[in-house]
């Protein structure tokens, strides 16, 4: 009878979770389109400087210049165009770094969780050591050492965040490996590798997808942090983190230089995490 009562609440929650999923996914698709089309739809050249047009306010504030919808920064570069181009870097890092981290972390987690023994000891020990590093400092260190640039950022994210996947996937794979259906697959004559791919992976996959979505949001943040401390892209190609760093230093003169890239970053990170949480609810049979 308690079940009946909670099921009623569950339906309401299900609708809300569905809406959340659609909103987050829709926003990300929209940003993806903006990023892909940026060279054609951006109103201005994101790199064009014009010191006579420096620190123009956004369109609804007095003193705004037509065409510069969200104002300009201290060098007279168009904020809106820079946000659009910045989305390219953010999403590229999210997709590439997220997928690579997922691939490596999940593989190690599956191996450790299913095979156990030495593989598990080695990988678990590695996870412990990794957890003792301050992650932000470590990523800054790596990028500083490798030298700025996209590949360095992606590498830094992969090197640091593989443990997020490995830890969770290892635990899940362990739990699955102990289940009866795995034993019966083995009895039915499947090899160990076959069992791992055909029986365990499909059951761990929902968790991996959720983690991947969350990881993409984390990658976006890491990229922003690195460009905030001026370690991201060597050229002055626009990044949200770089824009935020500039906005932070001129915050009392031109708030819009900080606010708009911050809103863009905030919404993207929120969307990735809401998408991840929404998928988690969707996959979780208890909540469904």
């Amino acid at each position: 009878m308690a079940d009946a009562a909670s099921a009623g609440g569950g339906r309401g929650r299900g609708r809300r979770a569905g809406l959340r999923l659609w909103l987050a996914g829709g926003w990300l698709l929209f940003m993806l389109a903006v990023a892909l089309l940026a060279p054609w739809i951006a109103p201005k050249d994101p790199l064009a400087q014009d010191l006579f047009l420096g620190r123009l306010p956004p369109f609804w504030v007095e003193g705004a210049e037509p065409g510069y919808w969200l104002g300009t920064d201290s060098l007279g570069r168009d904020v809106l165009s820079r946000i659009m181009h910045g989305a390219r870097v953010a999403l590229l890092v999210a997709l590439v770094a997220g997928s690579l981290t997922c691939l490596i972390g999940a593989t190690l987690g599956l191996l450790a969780g299913y095979f156990g023994g030495w593989a598990d000891i080695l990988i678990s020990r590695g996870i412990d050591i990794w957890m003792a590093f301050p992650p932000v400092l470590f990523s800054i260190l790596l990028v500083a050492v490798i030298g700025p640039g996209l590949p360095a950022i992606i590498l830094a994210i992969v090197v640091i965040d593989w443990t997020r996947f490995a830890r969770v996937v290892r635990a899940e794979a362990m739990a699955q490996a102990a289940m009866d259906y795995v034993a019966s697959a083995r009895v039915a004559g499947r090899g160990r590798a076959g069992t791992l791919l055909a029986e365990i992976l499909p059951n761990v996959l929902p968790t991996i997808v959720v983690l991947l979505t969350l990881e993409m949001g984390i990658a976006v943040i890491v990229e922003a942090i690195l460009s905030f401390v001026n370690l991201s892209i060597p050229t002055d190609s626009p990044t949200w983190g770089g824009m935020i760093a500039e906005g932070r230093s001129s915050i009392h003169q031109a708030w819009w230089v900080l606010v708009f890239p911050l809103v863009a970053l905030f919404l993207m990170v929120l969307s990735f995490s809401q998408l991840g949480e929404g998928l988690k609810d969707r996959f979780d049979p208890v909540l469904r």
């Binding site: 905030f228 606010v259 905030f266 929120l270 809401q274």
Partner: peptide, 14 residues
Amino acid sequence: LSVPDFLWGLVLVL
């Protein structure tokens, strides 16, 4: 929970 400390810091600065 969805937004990390870096972004909260920026929001608070503003």
